[in-house]
Design a binder for these strands. Sequence first.
DNA 1: AAGTTAATTAACCAATGAGTTAAATATAAG
DNA 2: CTTATATTTAACTCATTGGTTAATTAACTT
Lengths: 116, 116
Amino acid sequence: MPMDHLSTTFATLADPTRRAILARLAVGEATVNELAAPFAMSLPAVSKHLKVLEHAGLITRGREAQWRPCRLEAGPLKEVAGWLEHYRRFWDDSFDRMADYLKEIQTKGDPDGRKN
Amino acid sequence: MPMDHLSTTFATLADPTRRAILARLAVGEATVNELAAPFAMSLPAVSKHLKVLEHAGLITRGREAQWRPCRLEAGPLKEVAGWLEHYRRFWDDSFDRMADYLKEIQTKGDPDGRKN
DNA sequence: AAGTTAATTAACCAATGAGTTAAATATAAG
DNA sequence: CTTATATTTAACTCATTGGTTAATTAACTT
């Protein structure tokens, strides 16, 4: 089944272990063992999570000797933020006020009241 | 398995059909049949998607005669936006500039250079 | 009362996801 | 060359997901 990008990103983020890994990587690069340490699960399990994260483009992995340092890649998160923007008006009160404000300065600054 | 709120939300959003339903509901309330119309799938399938959305708190359903009008609820989306904010600095260039700016006016406005 | 429309529930199936243990690979160090 | 460390792959299990069709419930219409 052809999984679109956004669906892949959301599915990847739908796991607390993976979100915890991202939170850790927000601090800085880390190896697989370092990332696995906090979790009560086997190393292969974490390795799988990393593969999922990598496949979603949320991390990249280098190689230094026998270590594969992982680092955060925020591209997909930016896409999510973009998607969310379409809905901001449903929860953000200041969003409406900002829209009002923009409309106001738009008409005030343009005596003809053109829309654009 | 105890599914945390955020995981439930992400899992729910990880399906293009469900995101399309939300997009439709952003325009206004709609019944199950109306929501199902655009999709090449059975009504029960859509009904299931709606149950998932409802369970995630992304929609609520009223009842008018034999119709169950659905409407968007943005609470969980706001939570996602909140979570995302922790990562904004990784993709938003202006975020750093804003941080710099805030730091600047903070020190400029306070001759003693106190941090808070 | 009978029929029509709206929606859900039941029973089923195939595919996926998240975990396991055991084995394999890769690199470094004695 | 052997061993230790870091990580991945293989093979398997179990639960969940997303879809199906057929049957059921609910409410309106005639």
